[in-house]
């Protein structure tokens, strides 16, 4: 092969994700994207805060939300953040199999989170008749939480594509930045969820 980027202990750079110019650019590019994502979610949060009491006689946040489910979802997503840190740790130690294993666990935790969210929405729609069109509160709620769920679903597709595509390639300076970029995106999804469970669920149950 003319360009062999695969890593062995002699050629292993300190941070394989940022050892190449392409890797550095991917890292910066993702942060620019995350800056934009912050603004996107800012608009959704602002809308939600403005409309959360406009229930139009329908169910309010106190009628709907339950702590147990949200707590479980929070723990799942928080743990998946830690498992992706573990995966990046193994990437830095040039252990491809363990990295794939921990990213696999991350994917499973993400899938469980998404399944619980679908269950939650189905529960609101079937048992309370609370839909996107029920009230301004309903629209703002499903737009914000659903957009976050969409990000989780997109991240899962991204991760699974990465893991399958590179399964037989092993770790190299070509794919290390790709995994690292995904790791950062996944942490950001967790950051958004921290504010969702605080602002939407916990504050919704208090006030």
């Amino acid at each position: 092969m003319s360009q062999d980027h695969s890593l062995n202990p002699e050629t292993m750079p300190q941070d394989p994700a940022k050892a190449t110019m392409e890797g550095k650019h991917k890292h910066l590019g993702l942060w620019i994207f995350l800056g934009g994502e912050t603004v996107l979610f800012a608009c959704l949060f602002g809308t939600y805060l403005a409309l959360r009491n406009s229930t139009a006689g329908g169910p309010s946040s106190q009628d709907l939300f339950g702590l147990e489910l949200v707590f479980l979802m929070t723990i799942l997503l928080l743990t998946s953040s830690l498992t992706s840190v573990y995966a990046i740790y193994h990437m830095k130690n040039n252990d491809f199999k363990k990295m794939q294993l921990w990213f696999g666990i991350t994917a499973l935790l993400g899938i469980s989170f998404l399944a619980l969210e679908i269950y939650e929405f189905a529960h609101y729609i079937i048992d309370y008749g609370f839909t996107f069109r029920s009230s301004a509160f309903g629209s703002a709620f499903y737009a914000l939480v659903g957009f976050h769920g969409g990000h989780v679903a997109f991240g899962l597709g991204w991760l699974i594509a990465l893991m399958v595509r590179n399964a037989k390639r092993g770790l190299s300076l070509y794919n290390a930045p790709k995994y690292n970029t995904f790791g950062l995106y996944w942490h950001f999804i967790d950051v958004v969820w921290v504010f969702i469970f605080t602002v939407v669920y916990l504050m919704g149950m208090v006030s």
Partner: peptide, 18 residues
């Protein structure tokens, strides 16, 4: 800088909408 910029916009948006 990007994230703090994002947080600044977030603060503006939330203050405005509320």
């Amino acid at each position: 800088a990007l994230i703090y910029g994002g947080i600044f916009v977030t603060a503006l948006v939330i203050v405005t909408f509320v």
